Amino acid sequence: MPTRTAYDDELGDHFARHADTSPYNAYVDRPAMLALTGDVGGDVGGQRILDVGCGAGHYAAELLSRGAEVVGIDGSSTLLDHARRRLGDRADLHRHDAEDPLDFIDDASFDGVICALMLHHVANRRQLLGELRRVLRPGGWLLISTTHPTADWRRFGGSYFTDDWVDLPLAGGALSIRYQRMTLETFLGELLDAGFSLERLVEPRPVPSLRDVDEAAYHKLRQSPSFVAVRFRRP
C-alpha cells in the first residue's frame, strides 16, 4: 500500500522539471493524451475540463490554449506551486487527495476529465472512478493514461498478473515513486465496472520530433511500450 500518493517537496520539484522535456512525458504520454481530448478534431473550446492529478500544469496549459476552462486538483502543494507559476490565474487549482471523495464538485459539472499517469498511485481507485463518473455530464469524456502492464512486467519481473505495490527509482536513484501494478484486464475492467464506455485505446509511441532531440530514446520507445492511454465516455 502507498504511504503517500502526492509528489511533495524534492520529489515534486524533480517531477516538475522532468515533465518539461522528458521523452516519456513530453514526447510520448502528453502528445497521445492531448490527441484524444475533446470531440471531433480534439476541439475543447468552451468545454469545462477537470484535470485530476494536474501536477505542474502541463496538460492544463495546453487545454487552456485551446479555449477550455480548466479546474485542476493535485495532492501535492509543491506541484501546485509549479502549476500556479505556469498558469497564473487562468485555471482554478485545488489541493485535494485523490483517495478522498470529490465532495466539493457538483454532479454533472464537467464536459471532460483528464487523468494522466496518476491512477496507478491511487489505492481506492473504484471510489475515484465513481466520483469521476458522477462529476461528468452525460455524454462527457474521460481520458486516462497509466503505466503499460508489459513495461512493468519487463521492469519488475515476477508474475504478469501480480497487483503488488512497487517502488520505481528515478534518475540517479535517490528518489522513487510508488504505485500499484495492474493487468490490462484490471485497468479496463475497473473503468467498465464504473459505468464508462470504451471509445479508444492507444499504446503511445514517441512523436517524430523526439528523434531530433534524443535519437536513442526515440528508437527505444518505438520498440517497447511505456504507457496505455484510453478514452471513455459516460453514457
Rank of each mutant, 00 (worst) to 15 (best):
S197N: 09
A91L: 07
R134I: 09
W141N: 03
G195L: 10
D152P: 02
H14C: 01
P204A: 10
A98T: 10
F161H: 11
Y59A: 09
L79T: 07
T186E: 13
T183M: 11
D100P: 02
Y24M: 14
G38P: 05
D103Q: 07
P2N: 06
A83C: 12
Y27R: 11
P23D: 06
F156T: 12
D8M: 02
H148Y: 05
A6K: 00
A60Y: 01
L34W: 03
F104I: 04
D163G: 08
G67L: 11
L132V: 09
A83L: 11
H82C: 10
L119F: 08
F104W: 14
E199A: 06
E185H: 12
R205K: 15
P225T: 12
D97S: 06
G189E: 09
A91Q: 05
W165M: 00
R231V: 04
D89G: 15
G41K: 12
R95D: 03
T3V: 07
R133H: 13
L63I: 03
A123F: 05
R17L: 06
R86L: 15
T186L: 08
D89A: 13
R181C: 12
G140S: 11
L168K: 11
R205A: 14
H18W: 14
D167R: 15
D164W: 03
L136V: 07
R211D: 06
V40H: 07
L184K: 03
A56P: 05
H94G: 04
D13N: 05
R133W: 02
V40S: 11
G140N: 05
A116M: 10
V122C: 03
S176H: 13
V113T: 07
L210F: 09
L136D: 03
S226F: 15
R134W: 03
R222F: 00
R211W: 00
R205C: 10
S145C: 07
T183A: 08
R234D: 06
A56K: 01
P31N: 01
H219D: 15
S209C: 03
G41I: 08
A217Y: 01
S22G: 11
G173K: 00
T183G: 10
R125M: 09
D74I: 12
S76R: 13
G38V: 11
S65I: 04
I177K: 07
R211S: 09
R231Q: 10
V202T: 15
